[in-house]
Design a protein around this nucleic acid. Structure first.
Lengths: 139, 139
DNA sequence: AATACCAGTAGCATGAAAGATACCAGCACG
DNA sequence: CGTGCTGGTATCTTTCATGCTACTGGTATT
């Protein structure tokens, strides 16, 4: 039995094909997945956030993110340097000073990070609110 | 030898401690990590995106995301339903119709997803631009 | 002279995430 | 009656991101 929603869906697909909308949607999906690939994982966004908060030195960044180990930070920084998300500057004083900074390119994540921080704060409130009243989540 | 940057850093830390800034920064880091935990992985954001693009049925969502398998989609949808990111509606027609929709709660990811799509598109252009001229990336 | 900081690297271990495969019941189409 | 759609589940395997331990060479502190 074909219900109306099925018909509508088929119609939508046909229209979409004509208008080339699927092409756009595919591009957008790919773009989204690219981004997830570049900043994915547990640490990259926290590291960017840390650097944007003014932490520049390796150990400084490391200490600012509990749970992050030296080797992970090392790997992530290399990766992000290769992707031009951070810049590594060595000042040849004695001893040498190594400083990391965010690139302009990286700044474009600023909005995303802020949104995610906001979301995370709300989520926590929500969880606490629900558990306080012994509520089961409303679904 | 204490160079000035070290002194400044120490000073900043001291000032931060007094102003309680570290507390805030810890909260923000935690919020960010919470969000990463909830929407992390390869598929959750693409699935949300798909649903927001009008895909409602299980197989419809599945087909809209190449590479996504039935079992992964099943797991992710359950997870996201538990986190109140999507709603599952069963209409008891014959045959039953199962439809997924995004919750208001989930809509708060709209901005994040759009930003990520934009970023991904730019990133791809950038990569192509660099490789076209045989350029080494400028770092 | 010993200790502690800096900025890391190398290599192995492991565990969670993802993928592959098989399977289910129910309905419909021809 | 066979085939193919729907909306999934169960389970095993694999892979990759992450984590752990140890180590380096140089500088500064005490």
């Amino acid at each position: 039995m074909k219900d109306t929603s099925t018909l509508n869906r088929k119609r939508r697909q046909r229209i979409g094909k004509v208008l080339g909308n699927p092409r756009e949607q595919k591009d957008e999906l790919r773009a989204l997945q690219d981004t997830i690939y570049v900043i994915g994982g547990k640490w990259k966004l926290p590291i960017i956030n840390s650097i944007c908060n003014g932490n520049k030195r390796f150990r400084e960044i490391e200490r600012s993110i509990p749970g992050l180990t030296t080797s992970m930070l090392s790997r992530e920084l290399k990766d992000m340097e290769a992707n031009q998300l951070v810049k590594r500057t060595v000042t040849p004083t004695s001893p040498v000073v190594v400083e990391y900074s965010s690139t302009d390119y990286c700044h474009s994540f600023g909005e995303i990070i802020l949104e995610m921080i906001t979301w995370g704060k709300n989520h926590r409130k929500r969880i606490i609110r629900n558990s306080k009243h012994g509520n089961k989540p409303d679904y």
